[in-house]
Design a binder for these strands. Sequence first.
RNA 1: GCGGAUGUAGCUCAGUUGGUUAGAGCACCUGGUUGUGGUCCAGGGGGUCGCGGGUUCAAAUCCCGUCAUUCGCCCCA
Length: 414
Amino acid sequence: MSKLQPIRGTHDLLPEAMRQHRHVVDTAATVAGRYGYDAMATPVFEATEVFARTLGETSDVVTKEMYSFESKGGDSITLRPENTAGVARAVISNGLQQSLPLRYFYAGPMFRHERPQKGRQRQFHQIGIELIGIAHPLGDVETIAAGAAVLDALGVRDRTLLELNTLGDTESRDAYRGRLVGYLDRFRDDLSEDSRRRLDLNPLRILDSKSPRDREIVADAPVFGDSLTDGARAWFDAVKAGLDAIGIAYTLNERLVRGLDYYCHSAFEFTTEALGAQGAVIAGGRYDGLIGRMGGPDTPGVGWAGGIERLALLADADLPAPRPLALVPIGEAAEAATLPLAERLRAAGYRIDMAFGGNVKKRMKRADRVRARAAVLVGDDELAAGAATVRDLDSGEQSTAPLDSLAEALAPFR
RNA sequence: GCGGAUGUAGCUCAGUUGGUUAGAGCACCUGGUUGUGGUCCAGGGGGUCGCGGGUUCAAAUCCCGUCAUUCGCCCCA
């Protein structure tokens, strides 16, 4: 056990894990592309205000999970805990409100100072899409459909459940907030410590509490649906109708309250039972107020983010390393001839493995270990004949192929 | 941040109520094979028993602390 360990909550992505990781990203990028989403990236760190102002001063992410530090110039900088705020900032920075609507796909590392668990790390990775500039419920439907399609493509859709809720518009939320606080205040002393704090700061979160006593109290709380304005209700109905129209099943969950303050209207999560306490694999919602709150022109948006590690864990795809061809020179003359040969084959698109020493036996052993499809043996006999011996390492069959047309002759092993 | 469990070789794990030089399988290296891998046989390398302290004649084993992992809470992707 080495003392040199990665920072708590961070992990190395060795090739096998990297393939899983990339599989999720590539699959998601491809699927998102079919919906018209283009890949883009924002910096891994931003000015702290980008997150602090937009995620909600009282959110857990802002109050205790941000990796913030001071730059040499004295500015406060934060490693992004999520990417929606960064994308919103990029829209403003680049004047992209002139080019609406925007459809963006992203993938990259995010950072949150939390207690690590399986499927939860301090540096983790997310994929996500953002649809910006569409103030229409079918925008919500489109992003949810894209999320479902990603899960489908990864083969995990049947192990997830789509939970859906509406957070309404500002008017609905303010009205509900008033009613909820009015109700909960009578139970102030019975609420859990956390919830008492939330009562003043962010009462909607109490709906989400897992404390048994809180749940009892909340069970009789006013229902949010009763506070919806006609507009907000019509919006939500349109979203549900759209999902129905394309056959995407969902479960209404009135307790679904997103952790970040910028959400409104649709809030949704694709959840799974398969990952223990870390149930959410893709989650998102509408954030019409975000860009405005950040100082840009009022611009609507919807989107979601998915945890790559969680998706990879769920998908558990069998992705063996690509199999190379092994070049095995025998003798000094062959050694000299093989280097340019290897380059030619690589230029022709082959994955070539070549050891830099050892006798034939060792090199053959290595060819086997790297799971080479075939070994290309070149010795004095072969050089004299102008041909290589090609051994199929699966069947053990050997044949010869002319050196000057090896690239074509090896096609079956590509 | 809080509570529980775990921590012995690269990996998976044994290690009896504390008792000599800490073991196995897999993996790795060498040889049996001079121009042929996988199988087989023989041999070999690799561990401050997570780290620090304490109890004891003696600690992988008991106690305390600490770090890490893991499960749950909180919260989230």
